[in-house]
Write a protein that binds this DNA or RNA. Structure first.
Lengths: 331, 331
DNA sequence: CGCAACTTCTACTACGTATTACTAAGACGT
DNA sequence: ACGTCTTAGTAATACGTAGTAGAAGTTGCG
């Protein structure tokens, strides 16, 4: 008969009380080795697994976390991999909740998630303002990977745009003076951070900026932007917020008969799958998303347990220099 | 006091019994509109949510599904998006379990997942043999997206290699006679299916095959394979199992001074992010992974509920013709 | 008016576990 | 021999819900 065995069944078979079975499974002191062995053997024989729903009701803990994810162009797999793996090691299971960026009422949905009491913590990879927490003491921990501060500037490891500054300085060192930025959508903190870093670097180094164009993650748009440039902008350095935009920019340049990197140097971001095989291969910023995912999850779990927050990870982003960047060709 | 409200609290506030509250929330007949309204208002006031652990214990249903995922090179985001969205609409939550392809004992881990009784169903995007089910009647439903049949040939929508046949026929129509296949790892049913389709098409049409090379998803390997070709193979048509491999092959061809598509035509698979901006843009097979994910989840849920399996989706894969393919240049 | 049928609600119980309070039995010191 | 302390186990209970059996009130019909 296919009835799921309970701790009572195990107790009966082992000749002990249900309490003893429970003690064995929760690892409590004061059980003799002989009894423990008997219980474990009976449990194995019946293929017993504790009923997590019952346990959860008794302990008032669910052992479950939610990850809020904007299923969109960006590659979330490494982030998820890091987060899920870390959570599992800590004994949590992870549920994935889809929260598209475009959807109305992000904050409301996250609020609901928190208020549902079904999760001990919620980790959001969607850029959303910190939601209000439910009134209860037992409010789950919440952690957003990217958060807006009051001035809508981005914070968080994802949004660290210093590699962009470093790339621009290197380009200047190679002889570049004229720059163009192809930006991502302003709903993305990371895109905003890169745009701001671009503008402030132009300002600080006294460079010529042809403009800030774009505004979405479409390579077609990037290509169109390059086609719309005046004919006398060469040599030019294009700082794209993304490898897709960079690829579009390269395509557009080549279509106009401009050589990359001879006439136009291009940088991207994300180290997309085909970037290193692109012709020319694309200079980009590699993000260690798996490590970032794992780190975020560690922070969340520390918050749940009241532990001290783990140290911030460093070197999550590294510049990968490739063929799409060179000194401007003498004209 | 931050105590979570229960149905008893709601009942007290609404002046009814706990049973009535339960009836309202489970939508049972025989509750007057006035009473229902009173209950809902009290619940809203207390911000009451049914405790799913208690409900689950009572109903013996968890409302949870697991998705087993090989976090590896392939882009799983659309698959997950489709699957998670569909499950949510059907009232299920989805947990993500990482099961790397390389790990030992796949079947064991999936068995454990099934035997844990924590999930009503398990959907696997990892290519694994069908695991044995636990003895209980209440065994959860299991569905693997890709399954091996007894001869280790791949089945399942992912592994339908007919677009490859169609691409080869078109290439033959353009005048191609000499082919090369760059294969993926044989642990992937889809890779095996494409290799087999390649070989049988070569056979059927009496073509010349330079070989089947590769064996992983690395573009570097693909590039090396092209470099290793003899100098007199032109014109050549390269059928790569993947856009990454295709990109590597194009890179290798260009490095050897061969023009693509003039000397070498190349096809890929997956429509990777940068494929349409590649120079030349890559002819590929677009997979509607989101639709496939949603369909797989519908199948799983139908199996759980004992419903009839939904009809197989068609047109999940479509060929996208791009610049990397043309008639061989006259030599 | 009386009985049946229906509507609307309530009292009570079971689900499987973790844990508190308690008991029985030795061990130990005086 | 007696009381105390320790060890190893048991009995009993609460967690919050869904659903069964039944009660109270209302309507229908002869």
């Amino acid at each position: 008969m296919g009835k799921r065995p309970t701790s009572h069944d195990v107790a009966r078979l082992a000749g002990v009380s249900q309490s003893t079975v429970s003690f064995v499974f929760t690892g409590r002191e004061g059980i003799s080795a002989a009894t423990r062995e008997k219980v474990l053997q009976a449990a194995a024989e019946l293929n017993y697994r504790p009923n997590l729903a019952a346990r959860s009701m008794r302990t008032q803990r669910t052992g479950r976390l939610a990850v809020v994810v904007p299923f969109s162009g960006l590659n979330l797999v490494p982030l998820l991999e890091g987060a899920v793996g870390t959570a599992r090691e800590a004994g949590y299971t992870v549920e994935v909740v889809n929260l598209p960026l475009e959807s109305e009422g992000h904050a409301q949905e996250v609020d609901d998630l928190l208020a549902s009491y079904e999760y001990e913590g919620v980790l959001s990879f969607s850029p959303i303002p910190t939601p209000r927490l439910p009134a209860a003491d037992s409010a789950p921990a919440f952690l957003a990977l990217t958060e807006f501060d009051e001035e809508m500037h981005a914070t968080g490891a994802f949004s660290d745009a210093t590699p962009l500054v470093e790339m621009m300085e290197r380009l200047v060192g190679l002889g570049h003076r004229r720059f163009l930025h192809i930006a991502g959508p302003s709903t993305y903190p990371a895109a905003v951070a890169r745009r701001d870093a671009y503008l402030s670097t132009v300002e600080r180094l006294g460079l010529e900026s042809v403009g800030v164009v774009g505004g979405n993650w479409s390579g077609m748009t990037a290509k169109a932007c390059v086609h719309a440039l005046p004919g006398d902008v060469l040599p030019l350095a294009v700082i794209a917020a993304n490898d897709i935009l960079a690829a579009g920019a390269i395509r557009g340049s080549v279509e106009r008969g401009w050589s990359v990197p001879g006439d136009v140097s291009v940088t991207g971001w994300d180290d997309a799958l085909l970037s290193n095989h692109f012709i020319p291969s694309i200079t980009t910023v590699f993000q260690d998303r798996q490590r970032l995912g794992a780190h975020s999850m560690r922070r969340l779990i520390a918050a749940i347990r009241g532990d001290e927050a783990p140290e911030q990870e460093t070197d999550l982003q590294t510049i990968v220099w490739r063929e799409s960047v060179s000194a401007p060709r003498a004209r």
